[in-house]
């Protein structure tokens, strides 16, 4: 296996609500290599989103360790986590979360303005095939287009990690495939380690590796010997 970019050891997350304790993660051990495309599957409440949130620096663990390269995420404070997200992580959300008052290009520029080694917003939009829509506002774009803008925004900073939580969840099949193509393309071109959470088992075929979460643990790990291209997938 090539160079490790992420690893976690015994990652545990317990939510307390009143007297009740909810164990969202029960000691997850995980390792990801640079440039890997990983799909995470699992039912609701299996802990996959909590896991993504902790390795993405949005949430803190109750116990265990999470490492990004030589940064131990589990020891970083709020400020450190913000800096980590800013410098290394790209996020893609289920509902795109574009800023409605900014055009496609401006939404991308929003991130490139604060990034250390960004690509140009135009290049990022070209990567997702939206060059000719760059001056449109989100309200003037289709759902698929908005999600591709979100991907362009996520990768424009040249992140080491791209985290996607249900990126096709709000899209129909044809549009979803376009978005997956954009993700696969970006993964190949930029070399960002990509973690994609999905309910959609069909997507597993485009991954290097597939993890299945259940009850706060990784219960199954499959390595795809041959990846399919998104166009070959259907759901």
């Amino acid at each position: 296996m090539s160079e490790t970019i992420f690893h976690t050891k015994g990652l545990t997350k317990v939510y307390r609500s009143g007297a009740q304790e909810v164990h969202a993660l029960r000691g997850v051990d995980f390792r990801a290599a640079r440039g890997e495309f990983i799909v995470i599957l699992g039912p609701s409440g299996s802990g996959k989103s909590t896991f993504l949130n902790i390795v993405g620096g949005l949430d803190t663990a109750t116990a265990g360790e999470a490492w990004f390269e030589d940064h131990q995420l589990t020891t970083l404070d709020e400020r450190g986590l913000t800096q980590y997200r800013r410098d290394h992580v790209g996020f893609v959300f289920q509902f795109y979360n574009l800023v409605p008052s900014l055009t496609a290009r401006e939404n991308v520029a929003l991130v490139t303005e604060i990034a250390r080694h960004p690509m140009s917003p135009d290049d990022a939009l070209a990567l997702v095939g939206l060059t000719d829509r760059r001056d449109h506002f989100p309200a003037q774009l289709s759902g698929g287009e908005q999600q591709r803008v979100a991907i362009a925004r996520a990768i424009a900073k040249n992140p080491e990690v791209l985290l996607c939580d249900e990126p096709t969840g709000a899209l129909d099949s044809a549009t979803g495939i376009k978005v997956l193509e954009a993700l696969a393309e970006v993964n190949r071109r930029v070399g960002a380690t990509t973690l994609v959470i999905t309910h959609n088992a069909a997507i597993r075929e485009i991954a290097d590796r597939v993890l299945r979460f259940a009850d706060g643990r990784i219960v199954e790990e499959t390595v795809n010997a041959t990846k399919k291209s998104p166009a070959e997938v259907s759901w």
Partner: peptide, 16 residues
């Protein structure tokens, strides 16, 4: 609020 929270995820600091 939602936009601002999204920006926080993207790495904007609280101050920004």
């Amino acid at each position: 609020g939602r936009e601002l929270a999204s920006l926080r995820v993207l790495g904007f600091t609280r101050g920004e």
